[in-house]
Design a protein around this nucleic acid. Structure first.
Lengths: 189, 189
DNA sequence: GTCTATAAAGCGATAGAC
DNA sequence: GTCTATCGCTTTATAGAC
């Protein structure tokens, strides 16, 4: 079951899942040693600053994933709509169709945000900015593009909350479909 | 500064704020005794089951607030749009214009949800259901009403996440305005 | 690099005096 | 009802052998 941890990087996905499940405060080193299979010695060898450094590494990893799988396609697709299609597909995959929550979103809500303020801030700022640029290229004016981008990014976060509250991933996938649809409709006002 | 705690009910708002700031796992009894001004003796006298009972009391209080200030107006306004207007005003007030996060939303995201599954579930289910009924009365068909209600409730949650991530309440208030607008526009498809 | 042992502090919760 | 003292446990983190 548990994949072998042979280097620092192998631990990151496991750490990410633990932080998602328990939040930063609720994630304990004892569970981390258990699920990574690394003793405290190894853990502090790889992450000298302990839990905080582990969370930073996870946030870095998430940022990298979004850069590669969401932002680059959004920026570089010749057809902006294709980039947006790609984003929604990546988002569904990343959040396991609504069964997995957004780590950065959880961190944003409680006082964990203050610990990782710049990481949390730039994750959502980058996402909104890059999506707005794609929407603008697809024909929206500057204001409509920014507003729609905020609505979509917030809508995704809210859909994750709602889906988990109902223990029903369908809430997420249906919300995503509607958000996707809204990016295709030309502004009418 | 700190209001005097003379009975159990007086402690609830303080507890609510502490859980909002730190989440369930991050809220410590030492901070709770400090900020409520109640010693552990009094605390366990009022809440024999400790932290879990405190959180339950807070969730109860939140549910009651929404029942009175959101659900009743949504159900009983002769003009459904007036009820919806009332809801958005109440929401802005409750979440301090985006400076305060949703306790139930935070609880929904990590494993705290499992502890308070039914409270978390019914909070969002009730909100969505009552709002959908109002939207239907205002002219939307059943499906559109349910979808719009989900989009609005999720949109509010997401806007809280986004606003806090950017440390900018304006993100919340602007998103609320757009969500409110969407409930007024007749369905066009 | 990885382990075990351990430190020092904080945790939630309880007991019992008043 | 409120307090202090304390229990037993877990926490993060460190030290030092291998």
């Amino acid at each position: 079951m548990a994949r072998k941890i042979v280097e620092r990087g192998d631990a990151i996905p496991v750490l990410a899942e633990i932080f998602r499940e328990h939040g930063f405060a609720g994630a304990s080193l004892s569970e981390i040693t258990e699920r990574t299979g690394l003793g405290k010695g190894s853990l502090y060898h790889y992450f000298p600053d302990g839990k905080e450094e582990m969370a930073k590494a996870v946030l870095d990893d998430v940022a990298g994933w979004f850069e590669t799988n969401v932002f680059v396609p959004l920026r570089e697709s010749e057809d902006p709509d294709a980039g947006i299609d790609h984003m929604f597909k990546a988002v569904i995959r990343f959040f396991h169709s609504g069964r997995r929550i957004c780590l950065v979103g959880t961190f944003a809500l409680d006082d964990t945000r203050d610990r990782f303020a710049s990481e949390v801030q730039s994750y959502f700022a980058a996402w909104t900015r890059v999506l707005a640029a794609a929407l603008k290229r697809s024909g929206l004016n500057t204001k409509a593009a920014r507003e729609t981008a905020e609505d979509v990014v917030a809508g995704i976060q809210g859909a994750l909350v709602l889906a988990r509250s109902q223990d029903d991933p369908g809430v997420f996938t249906r919300a995503i479909k509607r958000l996707h649809q809204r990016t295709k409709v030309t502004h009418r006002d």
